[in-house]
Structures are given as structure tokens and as C-alpha cells.
Design a protein around this nucleic acid. Structure first.
Lengths: 341, 341
DNA sequence: ATGAAAGCGCTAACAC
DNA sequence: GTGTTAGCGCTTTCAT
């Protein structure tokens, strides 16, 4: 692996000159010399050592991304969004999967700090404890959080309250009044926001709020399945279920059908996220669309501004839309044009 | 951000001593001194700069992972597998999403080389061109490939031929003889292997091979949907469809049901991969299980051995299993125990 | 326009 | 046991 010194020797110049043409900071290099250098670089297939450069420049052009689970489409799409602007801006990302383990989160933060990332994007999971927060302290001005607003960092959010309201109002509009809700961790501000959207929409439509219609899942199809089984076994069972995310909604539908119910005739189901598969599920899933990719790209753009020292607004909230499909309105959906899907 | 020098001063020792307790290479540090140093480290919340260390050690403890699309569950799970052993071994990963663009692949390789990764895991996409191969040359002994065997690097594979054979034999066993196959890119050795498994299984069971029953999709539900529409509109239509992956299989089922067919009564469908959702689809999807997580973890283990200079076998092939669910055998599946899912 | 030399923060000989 | 010092490969003043 050749180094700058090799290039300098081959081109009969000093390493400073090579560095200059590499960074073309000041064009104070004569074009002939520059050409010689470029040729030497090509001949040797030389690539500057980013480590050495970063050590000197105190800038690695690498950012850390901390998420709970890359195999969850929601986070994967966020990562794609981050990647797309990172690419454009010349940054790379170091991925940290925490599997939602608090100590893994702390470990990740310390590690990213050691690797001297230029910034961190944090999504999902909690960073309330003392340790993680103090670990992030050093990076204070270079952290962007996705999906939380209970922590003092710039945040990219989704309007979960409005989204949940949309979902419930749709269910009410198609005739439901006993609406179940499958939530998840009470530590999640996202879950709490969706719950409060659900409650306020019920109130707005003067539906009685029934605590037994609320269950806590784990964002997986399995847990949706399990919680639906519980809800549908109750004497007071819902005619519609609002699942906290699409994956749980799939589990709900599976459970309902397994119990011999028809969806949406006997049970309407709506999810949250609009993952790609939701339009191909049978029945296709009505859901609240979350702009996951945009969440990622926006967070990276915010981080770039932050790194550049620009002022940015503390919180940015993205809108959600409702996507109505078969799981709430039935077969007639098939008559819609393909584009609606 | 404090540096080793600060720690040394605070503990009244030399930086070499600090370095020694940090790396505990030789325990030639008296326990009192070590204690002083550790206290100073804690006081200052000191973390060594991984960049400086890497520059010196010529080892970054970082590896690059190049995949086409992180939002595809298949790759996400591979990344999770890689992460899990990377964590255990103290490595971190820099993720490169190529979106299958050849020039992005080349760019990624160069970039990872600049960032001086200790190795690269490459999955999906083609690296046949001159450029990418020459770019990988420098890293020759530190590259592991997942899912290809047409390139001269250690490879972690899945037995696609056997898997496809299993799928077709199952369909034949439940009474089908007109079996469609939805493949994808002809540049993919995986696709070609699955196709050849399909063909040989047909031959083994003396089913006539009908080229019009083979379509080319793009691994997405959309493309499965589209290709199924074509297949099922033919005068000579299949009674069963073997989709190249689960996502396409979902699209196939959706198309069939939209056309008023019942699955599996009018059309049996089997996929490939066994992504988590396949057990919760309605009807649940019969499929060939691919140990994606293991593919990832095994590739990372191989890379670690490679980096350690150990000899490793050129190719390792992982077995596949068939998972039979409703989409090929129908409702009776519901009577199976939950564990079978 | 170009070169010499001083670091960036760390590790590892080599002294003592 | 502990300290001194020479790099790792690069960027960037400061001379010339």
C-alpha cells in the first residue's frame, strides 16, 4: 500500500506538494507539477490514508448511527435515508445495533466517541439513564435524535398524535365504536403519543374509553397475534383494532382469521408505518404512513448543519397520512386503481 | 476531550505507563501506579483516540460491509449476524449500501480501503468488472463473500440447488405438475442455482419443462404480483408457483386472490428465505428456510480467522430446510401446533 | 510555486 | 517498573 511519500518520490516533488494537489485547497501548484503528481498517484494506485488525515484534521467524515434493530424495516429505511444524504455529503456511517439493551447503548456511544465520529444519530431506545447521557455529553453539539422529544437534543419526529387520531377517526367513520389498541413499551414517547392520539380521538367522537381494550405488545407479528387473541377472547371485544405498528397488525389479522373471523367484516384492522408489504398483505392493510426514509435523510441533513455549526430548530415534526386499504373497508378495495396501492 | 498526556500528568507518570495500563500488554506496571492511572482516567472520563491507535497499530478493528439494500430483510438479517460476532470480537462495521449500482460498489470499496478497514464482507451484487476487482486486490486476503461462488474469494453460501429441489419436490408431492418459477437477474448465481434446482427436480419427477412457466421478477412483492398476473393469464397456466423469494411469493398470492383464485386450492405458492413475516401472512407461506443470520455470523467468523492469518476453506455451504405452511397445504395447517410456525 | 518541519494522539522499542 | 523517544501517514504553517 503506497503512501504519500512514495507518490512524492515518483513525481519528484515534496509530500507537501502531493498533499496540495490532493486537497486542491490552494491552487498554488503549477499545472505541470499537478499533472506529474496525478500521474504518479494513478501509477501507484495511491489512496490517502483516511486515518492519518482524520487524526490531523480532527474530522473523520464518519458518523455513528445507533438503532435498536436493523432487521426491523422501520429502522432499515431510516438507515437508508441517512445513507443517501451521507453519501451525497461524503460521510460514512458506522452502524450500531443495540437490540434495545441499555448497556449496549452505552457501550456503543463510548465506542463511537473513541472512533471519533463527527456526529451521532440516535433512534429508538431510551437514553435517559445517567451513564448514556454523560457519555453523549462530549458530543453534545453533534447529536440528532429520531422519534423522541423527551431528551435535550435536536429531534426529528413524526406526528404520532395526529397519526393515531387519523386512524381512529377512520375506524369511527366506517362504523366502529369499540376500538382496541395494541401499544408497546411505556418508556416509548412514540407509543405514548399514539396512545394519546387514540384517546383524544375516542373522546372527540364520544366513544367510551375502555382500558381493557388496550394491550401491550412488542412491535412484532408474534406479539400482535398474542394480544389480538387476548382481546378477541374477552366478553367485551372490539370490532376494530388499531395496532401500534404494521407488524403487529399482521399478527392481529392472522389471529382473527385463525379464529374464523373475517377481516374487515368481523374485525377491522389498521396499522401504523405503511411498510411496503402492507399493500400486499391479504387483506391489504390500512395504515398510517410514516415517512421513514425522510426521517433518516432529514436527520442526516440536520446533523450536517449541526456539524457545520449552523443553528437549527430543536424539533422538526413530519406529517403522517392515512392509507386506506382492504383491512378496514373490504373487498371493494380491489376496484381501486393500481396506483392507489 | 482529554488525551493520554492529560492522564499521565494527572497521575504523575509518563504516557508510556498510561499506555501500558490501557493495553495491559505487559503487566510491568506496579499495582499502585496502575491504580493511580485508572483513577485519573476515570476522573477525566478519558477514552483513547482509536484513530491514533489505529494509525500506529495498523489495525482499526473496523470492517466494511457491502450490501445492495439494507431495507431488504435478507440483508438486514445478514448484517445482524455480522454485528453479533463483530461485537463479540471487538470489531465495528462500516455499512455500505450500494443499491446495486456498480459504480457505487467500486466507490465503496475504494472508500473502505481509504478508511483502512481490517476486512470486507461483500454480499449481493456483482464484482466481476475489472475495476472493482482491482480495487479489492489490495485487500485480497481480507475479503469474504456471501452468496456467490463465481469469484475467487472465500465464500459463505447457501445450498440453493438443494433448496429449490426441496421446494419443487414438495409441490410435486402435493399433486402439482405445472409449476411456475419466478426468477430474477441472470447475473445472480443464486438465481441460476435456484433455477437449476427447479429444473433438475422437474426432470427427476418427469415433469415436462415449460419455458413459458418461467418469469423474471425483481425480488420485490410488486414484481411477484406482476409476473404472477402474466403467468396466470396464460392459456397454459401453472397450478403452483415457486417464487424466487418470499417477497415475490407474497405478491403472487396477492395477485391470485385478486383474480378470485384460492390459495392453495387453485394455486399453491412456495417462497424462498423464510422471512419472519411469512408465518403470519394469510395464508401463511410455505418456503425454504435460509439461515440468514448464520450466513452473516459465519462470514464474520471466517473474516476474523482470515485476519488472524489462519487457513480457511474456500467455500462453506449452508443447508436449507423446507417449512410447510398453508400456502401449499391449506387450512389444515391451523391445526398444527404453534411451535410449527 | 515548492519544500522543511512540526505536530495530530497513540504504541513500542530502547534506555535506565 | 518507568520514562524517553521515534515513528504511524497525513496536513499545514513558515520559509524560501
Amino acid at each position: 500500500m503506497s503512501k504519500i511519500h512514495d507518490v512524492a518520490r515518483r513525481a519528484n516533488v515534496s509530500i507537501a506538494t502531493v498533499s496540495r494537489v490532493l486537497n486542491s485547497a490552494d491552487h498554488k501548484v503549477s499545472s505541470e507539477t499537478a499533472e506529474k503528481v496525478r500521474q504518479a498517484i494513478k501509477d501507484l494506485d495511491y489512496r490517502p490514508n483516511a486515518l492519518a488525515r482524520a487524526l490531523q484534521m480532527k474530522k473523520t467524515m464518519t458518523i455513528g448511527v445507533i438503532i435498536p434493530d436493523i432487521s426491523n424495516h422501520y429502522y432499515a429505511e431510516i438507515v437508508r435515508g441517512i445513507q443517501s444524504v451521507a453519501d451525497r455529503e461524503g460521510y460514512n456511517i458506522i452502524l450500531q445495533n443495540t437490540e434495545r439493551k441499555p448497556d449496549q447503548i452505552v457501550k456503543s456511544i463510548y465506542l463511537l466517541r473513541e472512533k471519533i465520529v463527527d456526529g451521532i444519530i440516535f433512534s429508538g431506545g431510551t437514553i435517559n439513564g445517567y451513564e448514556p447521557l454523560s457519555a453523549l455529553k462530549e458530543l453534545r453539539d453533534r447529536v440528532v435524535v429520531i422519534g423522541r422529544h423527551d431528551v435535550n437534543f435536536p429531534a426529528i419526529m413524526v406526528d404520532n398524535i395526529a397519526g393515531a387520531t387519523l386512524a381512529v377517526e377512520h375506524l369511527v367513520a366506517v362504523g366502529h365504536r369499540e376500538i382496541g389498541f395494541i401499544s408497546w413499551s411505556e418508556n416509548s414517547t412514540t407509543a405514548m403519543d399514539r396512545l394519546s392520539g387514540y384517546r383524544s380521538a375516542l373522546a372527540q367522537n364520544s366513544c367510551h374509553f375502555e382500558p381493557s381494550l388496550i394491550r401491550q405488545g412488542k412491535l412484532t407479528p408474534e406479539s400482535g397475534y398474542e394480544q389480538a387473541k387476548v382481546l378477541l377472547a374477552q366478553r367485551k371485544k372490539p370490532t376494530a383494532i388499531f395496532a401500534g405498528n404494521d407488524l403487529m397488525a399482521f399478527g392481529v389479522i392472522f389471529a382473527a382469521i385463525e379464529m374464523g373471523m373475517r377481516v374487515p367484516e368481523d374485525l377491522a384492522v389498521i396499522g401504523f408505518d405503511n411498510i411496503p408489504l402492507s399493500s400486499f398483505f391479504v387483506p391489504s392493510l390500512s395504515t398510517i404512513e410514516v415517512p421513514m426514509f425522510t426521517l433518516g435523510s432529514d436527520s442526516m441533513e440536520t446533523l450536517v448543519s449541526l456539524i457545520a455549526g449552523q443553528k437549527i430548530s430543536r424539533i422538526k415534526i413530519h406529517k403522517t397520512n392515512i392509507v386506506v386499504r382492504q383491512s378496514t373497508i373490504g373487498k371493494e378495495y380491489f376496484s381501486l386503481t393500481k396506483e392507489d396501492r
